[in-house]
Design a protein around this nucleic acid. Structure first.
Length: 467
RNA sequence: UCCUCGGUAGCUCAAUGGUAGAGCAAUCGGCUGUUAACCGAUGGGUUGCAGGUUCGAGUCCUGCCCGGGGAGCCA
């Protein structure tokens, strides 16, 4: 079946050019003269207005065509006599593939709430909003690969099933093929995992970072881009149980290099989306004016330097504000982690945009982060953006074997299972660093979607696993 | 998991403890190169579920389920 996508028809068509188009009906308006059937095929934000002249074979099909029906139309482009669109598509031949009973089809011409659309996840991609979000998501996914491939990074496929259970990145989903109604018992009364599929406990990955480290310490620069799973009972507008994460890891690089990479990366994503998704961004900025960034603002971010400050400076700034009468629900003190309200204060009121906070106290950060010479802080960095908060978390990794072992023992992390990780420090250790970026949070930030469930086709969250 | 607000027609929402309503959608008719079209008519409800108080509960009380917002955990 040959068809032209509407995106191409609208971009390249000329008056009189012949096309076959397919799509789903958004609205139908019948008049005494022609009928107007507006269709969208998902290829772009714009719809195509079909004009069906009266007393034609196509007109006889109009009673079967309601909002949501799938059609194929052949015909020709003509400058529109009406307002609201540049082109009309004059139908010569029409075929109805699938009707949509108007009394039962849930999507109406009028807008729906995002909460209602979440209940019909299989139909919401047919709306303007989700079409826009999913096309932006796609453009961003391609931009991720273009950015890293253009810099010589190797895309590393780290595992989804893992035997590692102590990365400290969050609660794990356990994977098993054991019969839960007849669990085999070991001598000590516990579960006999010898008889489970892998002969030991297994989980879904919470991060590909540790694997990315051994790959970076062989290939130089690598990145992961794939699904990640966290079993935390988080019920917020910015957490998912299954989300996509991007984790670059660079050998022979320090925290400065890491920050530069993170900044260049976010800028690249902004630039790409402005270049390739202008209609989508413009639609979202119009439809969600209170929350979405104007296109011009995203374009500005693509060229802007991010603000930088150390954790210690950030705390000083917050304490100064606190002393000046600014109220915070949570107290500010060196050694405590920054709360959401503190991050928001920094991005919205101090720096008025994205900011990279570095050198956090060691006690609030993970064991693998490299100790700074001051003995109190580690070479960590978080990229904070307005409204979303943390979008990237990264660090230089501890490459010194004695320091890493000491830190693990301080935190009571057993060495079994981590010998391979320590091996990387025994054999040809080198400075290296990386970060993790939550893909959905970037999509959220750039589309203006308030709830992370609205930037992924099938959101997974506690008590939420539908289609 | 905690705090908070909510759940009434297909959707968005009204309704002092006293006969459950509107707009949109749907159906039918009218009008029209229309465009969130417009005008008229019609149909549509176990008020989230289960108890309780009361002469009487959408409304008050208890428990549960579901959703929004905020928080913690994080990306």
């Amino acid at each position: 079946m040959q068809r032209d996508r509407i995106k191409k028809v609208l971009a390249q068509g000329r008056a009189g050019s012949q096309h076959v188009v397919c799509g789903w009906v958004r609205t139908k308006r019948e008049t005494k003269g022609p009928a107007f059937v507006v269709i969208n095929d998902g290829s772009c934000q714009d719809n195509l207005q079909l004009v069906v002249e009266p007393d034609t074979a196509a007109a006889a099909l109009l009673p079967r065509i309601g909002t949501g029906a799938a059609l194929r139309a052949s015909g020709a482009l003509r400058p529109s006599q009406g307002k609201g669109q540049q082109w009309d598509f004059v139908v010569a031949d029409l075929e109805v593939y699938g009707e949509a009973d108007p009394a039962a089809y849930p999507l109406q011409k009028k807008g729906h709430t995002l909460e209602f659309l979440r209940e019909i996840g299989h139909l919401r991609p047919r709306t303007n909003t989700f079409g826009a979000v999913l096309r932006v998501r796609n453009a961003l996914a391609l931009a991720v690969h273009e950015f890293f491939q253009g810099r010589g990074f190797v895309w590393a496929h780290t595992p989804i099933l893992t035997g590692s259970d102590a990365e400290g990145a969050g609660q794990l989903f356990q994977v098993t093929t054991l019969d839960l109604l007849a669990v085999p018992r070991a001598a000590d009364g516990g579960v006999d995992y010898e008889r489970d599929f892998f002969g030991r406990r297994a989980y879904l990955t919470v991060s590909g970072q540790l694997e990315a480290e051994f790959l970076a310490l062989a290939l130089g620069d690598v990145y992961t881009f794939g699904p990640t799973f966290r079993a935390e009972n988080s019920n917020t507008a910015r957490h998912l149980s299954e989300f996509w994460m991007i984790e670059p890891e660079m050998a022979f690089a320090d925290l400065r290099d890491d920050m530069t990479l993170a900044e260049d990366f976010v800028r690249h994503l902004c630039r790409t989306v402005v270049e390739r998704c202008e209609p989508e961004l413009a639609f979202l900025a119009r439809q969600y004016a209170e929350t979405a960034l104007p296109v011009a603002e995203i374009a500005r971010l693509a060229d802007a330097r991010f603000a930088h400050c150390t954790y210690t400076e950030a705390v000083a700034e917050l304490e100064r504000a606190s002393g000046g009468g600014r109220r915070f629900e949570y107290p500010v003190a060196w050694g405590r982690d920054l709360q959401s309200e503190h991050e928001r204060f920094l991005t919205d009121e101090v720096f008025h945009g994205p900011v990279i906070v570095t050198d956090y106290p060691r006690q609030i950060k993970a064991f693998y982060m490299r100790s700074n010479d001051d003995g109190r802080t580690v070479a960590a960095m978080d990229v904070l953006v307005p409204r979303i908060g943390e979008i990237i978390g990264g660090s230089q990794r501890e490459e010194r074997l004695d320091r890493l072992e000491q830190r693990m023992s301080e935190l009571g992390i057993p060495c079994e299972g981590f010998q391979w990780y320590l091996d990387l420090r025994r054999f040809g250790s080198a400075p290296h660093c990386g970060f993790g970026l939550g893909f959905e949070r970037v999509v959220q930030y750039l589309t203006g979607m308030q709830n992370i469930r609205d930037v992924i086709p099938c959101p997974r969250a506690p008590r939420e696993i539908g289609i």
